[in-house]
Design a binder for these strands. Structure first.
Length: 273
DNA sequence: GTCGATGTTATCAA
DNA sequence: TTTGATAACATCGA
């Protein structure tokens, strides 16, 4: 669910809502989500203020007044919610950071694939989770992007999903950008000419930016900090559209499984080379 | 009741 | 090093 545009939307919300707030109480339901010890997690958060919020790939990085960081990854079903007044923890709520004004930032995650981790370091980028990440897709130049992908031997969609190559693209946006650039998802990356790869780079920029503007895509259950849905799902052209006519050529959209992930494509617009 | 599918990544084997 | 298969987990729908 949460890919780059959704995570970016959440981070922007955090900047508006929780910056400057001081953590008063930390509630934790023990689970694999919390990657630090409960005692050290609480000790290092209570009394600290939230000083900054940024995104790297699909990771959320909160900076604390102590200089430490709180690293959050939403996994597949993780949600952060801002509550303006106290409420008891519900099902699948795992962590609640309660601020001095009694508002709180709550983490809910049905499948518990998400991660919460305290990072005691001033060089957050060197942390294991972040240092192996590839380029930000909205920052890499089109020449570097083309060069990077041309030495990859795997299939183009797998490569786009590989966070070590580019960080932030997930299953939905991978399908959307490949459709936009008219590339067959199973095409080997190195088979694609650099002009086409530059088109792909352009498609990534266009679609991710539009999606951010739309507040992300709410497929299934993505919600922003205030529980509101994004609306980029209404702009999806290919993802989830099996059997519907391609918006470009009216050919029936197909679905196949690639790396155990569903992949939607137009067999006419996205042909094997 | 059972099976398969669902946006994530870590881990392991080839 | 790179790539692909599998597992972690809970829920929903056929």
């Amino acid at each position: 669910m949460p890919e780059l545009p959704e995570v970016e939307t959440i981070v922007r919300g955090l900047r508006e809502i929780v910056l400057g707030k001081k953590i008063k109480v930390v509630k934790i339901v023990p689970s694999r989500v919390l990657q630090s010890s409960i005692s050290s997690f609480k000790r290092n958060l209570i009394g600290k203020k939230i000083k900054g919020a940024k995104r790297r790939g699909k990771n959320i990085i909160l900076k604390l007044s102590s200089g430490n960081f709180l690293l959050v990854h939403l996994g597949m079903t993780g949600h952060l919610f801002f509550l303006d007044k106290p409420a008891p923890l519900g099902k699948h709520d795992h962590i609640d950071l309660i601020f001095s004004d009694n508002s709180s930032l709550r983490y809910n995650d049905i499948r518990k694939f998400g991660k919460f981790k305290l990072v005691k370091s001033s060089s957050i980028e060197k942390v294991e989770d972040l240092k192996s990440l590839g380029s930000e897709p909205l920052e890499i130049s089109k020449d570097n992007f083309a060069r990077l992908l041309q030495r990859r031997r795997g299939r183009i969609k797998s490569t786009l999903l590989n966070q070590k190559v580019v960080a932030g693209i997930g299953n939905i946006y991978a399908d959307e950008v490949l459709f936009e650039a008219k590339i067959y998802p199973e095409e080997k990356a190195f088979n694609i000419c650099s002009d086409r790869l530059k088109k792909l780079h352009q498609a990534i920029g266009k679609i991710l930016k539009e999606a951010i503007k739309a507040g992300g895509s709410s497929v299934d259950n993505y919600l922003d900090l205030e529980g509101k849905k994004g609306f980029f799902q209404f702009h999806h052209k290919i993802y989830g559209k099996k059997g519907e006519p391609c918006p470009r050529c009216r050919t029936k959209i197909k679905k196949m499984v690639l790396n155990q992930r569903s992949s939607y494509f137009c067999p006419n617009c996205q042909k094997k080379l």
